[in-house]
Amino acid sequence: MDLVLIFLSAAIVNNFVLSYFLGICPFLGVSNKIEKSVSMGAATTFVMVLAALATWLINNYILIPYNMGYLQYVSFIIVIASLVQFVEMFIRKASPALYRGLGIFLPLITTNCAILGLALFAALRQYNFIQTVVFAFAAGVGFTLALVIMAGIREELDRAPVPEAFKGAPITLIIAGLLALAFMGFAGLISG
């Protein structure tokens, strides 16, 4: 029950993109085609789970026992940067097509604050190992969900009569705002 709550909370109620406003860059950058947003979401989810695992280990076996909580931010960033490098090498080897498709947004996952935020939240809430993994996966699912919803709307938008002044970035930001408002409706559904 606990895990289900964590999952729903991270994926929907406290959606990283739409209620914490973390990871807005790929949310606006890779949300023009549904296919691309799905693979971006999958890559981010993958990195999120790996990063949460690694940061949990470092936090619980190095930082906390030796009282070095103040190193959380720096060490987490190192972990995430190295992990993304690793994932990039792996994808390049395993699936060159996916590597070309994701392009610049793959190394940019490094700077996706949703991932650092996730690691810090998990440390702050003192989740145990299983909880951290579920939390990270749920955050990734939430991120993918936001991206896919946005991409779906934007694909329809291409055919809509948008006023000249609102074309491009303005209408995208307005939609992002409306989506965030819609997700506020979930607030209070589950606390935590």
């Binding site: 190095i62 030796y66 190193l71 060490s75 190192i78 190295s82 490098q85 390049r92």
Partner: peptide, 30 residues
């Protein structure tokens, strides 16, 4: 001592990841 410990820990962590990445780069070289 805090500064020294921080530098030491971070250095160690960075070293560890650097080694992992170097090995991965060799193994996963396209």
């Amino acid at each position: 001592s805090i500064i020294l410990i921080s530098i030491f820990t971070m250095g160690l962590l960075a070293m560890f990841f650097a080694v992992v990445l170097v090995v991965a780069n060799q193994k996963l070289k396209v």
